[in-house]
Design a binder for these strands. Structure first.
Lengths: 149, 149
DNA sequence: ATTATTCCTATCGATTCAGTAGACAATCCA
DNA sequence: TGGATTGTCTACTGAATCGATAGGAATAAT
């Protein structure tokens, strides 16, 4: 229900890398471009590299770039690397929850909720965000003025 | 992205109250029925009362009951009373986020995400869960086997 | 060498989370 | 009237998480 600062920063960094089109960007440049605390971003980039989302090189002319084409990296890919699995209740995945009595059907609600989050986050790619051209189903949701309050 | 134990317990308690059909239940009985730490549940019920979700009475024959018909209480109602507004990023609501540069379109993604969560949580009522009969759109999501992994 | 950069471990303070303790107030019943 | 039952309220605690920082080691280019 709540997105961490870490995930937010990670996505902004990755999108910025997509906009750089393969040219490496240093951690410092990324931090300035997206107003992210530099040392905090550094630890996030490390995590992204270990998760296979970005590559890196040290030294002058070094920096970070996307490990795959931006069209092949979804927002969910990034979120899972940073925060682990989507939509869980008390740290447990919905399919493992054991509800009793009148609350039985709650599990199905959580499964549905996760499915609807996936429908968005598995579909939107880093390239979509960088270009500003989101998939039609997302546009439809955003077009409703009621969604903005 | 993560639901707190508090919200989970609150929903289970409220659903249990719905199943009791107006007869008051004591905090202790609720705690046993749903396996919730008694004193923790107590503080949750207090919050639900202040939020207008349940009513209460002290003394023998006392207890808690729903303040409105179960058909008129949505899961989102309960969640908002316990945890505050839905789907925020770093504690800020999506419409107030100021993204810069390549990340501009991220805001729209968060708005869409919140809208799709609302589509579920504003529609499912406590009565739906207690009866086990969820609205058709939710059933459709749950019917997909892929949603369960 | 020097400089620029990533890599890595450790740590910190604040906040949130999950849960507990214990006194107090209302209600009912005998 | 008195006792049992139940909710009300404030305060507290220990653990985990969150957001962020420090500082040095390793690597690459000039």
């Amino acid at each position: 229900m709540r997105l961490s600062a870490r995930v937010d920063y990670a996505l902004r960094a990755v999108v910025e890398l997509a906009a750089s089109e393969g040219r490496p960007l240093t951690s410092d440049k990324l931090a300035r471009a997206q107003q992210i605390p530099p040392k905090f971003l550094e630890s996030i980039l490390l995590q992204l590299r270990r998760g296979g989302v970005v590559n890196s090189q040290r030294g002058p002319e070094g920096g970070y770039w996307l490990a795959r084409p931006a069209e092949q990296i979804t927002l969910a890919d990034v979120i899972r690397v940073i925060d682990g699995p989507l939509a869980n209740v008390r740290g447990e995945r919905p399919e493992r929850l054991g509800y009793q009595g009148a609350a039985r059907a709650l599990q199905q609600v959580w499964v549905a909720l996760r499915a609807s989050e996936r429908a968005i986050l598995d579909q939107v790619t880093v390239a979509d965000v960088a270009s500003g051209e989101l998939p039609d189903p997302i546009r439809a949701l955003v077009a409703d003025p009621a969604a903005w309050f």
